[in-house]
Amino acid sequence: MVSITKKPLQFIQTHKKVVTTATKAVKTGLAVKKAVTDGFEAAKSVSAKGLKGATTAAREAASKAASSPTGKLGMMGKLKIGGSAVSVVTGLTKLPGQVGAAGKDIRTAMRTGSRQDIATAAKSTISAAQTTVSTTKGALTTAVTAQKLIATNRAATAAFKAAVPGASKAVTSAAGRAAMTSVFSGASASVTKKATVSAVQLAAKETGTVAKAVAGSASRAASKAALREGGKAAAEAAVRAGAKAATGALAKGAARFAPGLNVAIAALDTANAAATLADPKASTGSKITSVITAVGSIAAATNIPIVSQIGAGVSAVSSFVGSFF
C-alpha cells in the first residue's frame, strides 16, 4: 500500500506540525500539477491537440484525479488490474539537519531500518512508534491526499520513460547490455504504449504530421550508416557519434537512478564528459580529455580497461606526449 508522510522527527507529535505537513502536501499537489504541464506528457500531447491544448488537458486531468474522494481506492484498483511495475513508497521521512549520506550513524541505522536506531543516530529522543505513520485524522488525511497526488502524477506521466536513444546499445556490453536496456526502455514499454495510443490515434486523424515523418526512418538511417562504410569514414562517424552521445541524451540517461544496476562502468565516462563540459571551472584540457575518454568508451565499443592500455609503454608515451609541448 502506498503511504507517504513527511515528518520532521523532532516535532512529529505536535498538531501544528500535522497542519504544516498537510499544507506541504497541498503545495506538493500544486507542484505535481505544474510538473504535468512541464513534463513529457505535455510534449506528447502536442501531436494530438497542438501545444495550446496540451497544457489545459494535463491540468484538467491532474485536477480531476486529485479532487476525487475515491482517488485512493481507484488508484490501487488500477494498479492491481494493470499489474504494471509499481514501486510502492512506504514511507518518507525528513532526517534532521543535513546529516544524510555523510553520516555514519545514519548509514548504520539505515541498514536495519530500526526507527530507534535512526532516532538515536539523529540524537533524538523520539521513540520508534512515533516515527511510524500516525493514525490521527490530520496525518491520515495528509497521507491519503499525497497518495492521490502521487497516483495522479504517475498516471499522467506514465508515458515518460527514461529512454536512451539507440546509442545506448553500443556502450553496454555482455550481460549488462540487456539489463540496461530494460531499465532505459523496455521496463515501461507496455505502460508507455498504452498511455500513448490515444495521442497517436488523434494525431493521425487531426494532423498526421508526426506520424508521416517517422515512417521509413529506420530504413533511411540504415542507408546513411551503409554509406559511411569503409574504414576511415566509419571510424570518424563513430568518433563523432561518441562525442555527440557524451553531450546529449545518452549522458542524461546515465544520470537516471537505477540502484543495483551497474550503469557506472558502461556510462560514467559519458556522464563525466557531459558534466565536465558543462562545468565553467573545468579547464579546456580536462574538457577535451573527458570527451575523448567518452569517445573511447563508445566508439571503441567498450571503455578501455585500466589494467590493459593498448598504447605504447611508459617511455614511448612520454616521448610521444613530449612532441606536444
Partner: peptide, 19 residues
Amino acid sequence: GLRESKDLTAQMAQTAWHL
C-alpha cells in the same frame, strides 16, 4: 587542450591508440 597538461595528453593518447 592538447597542450595543457602532459598527464591529460598521455591519457588522450592511450584512448587514441585504442581508436
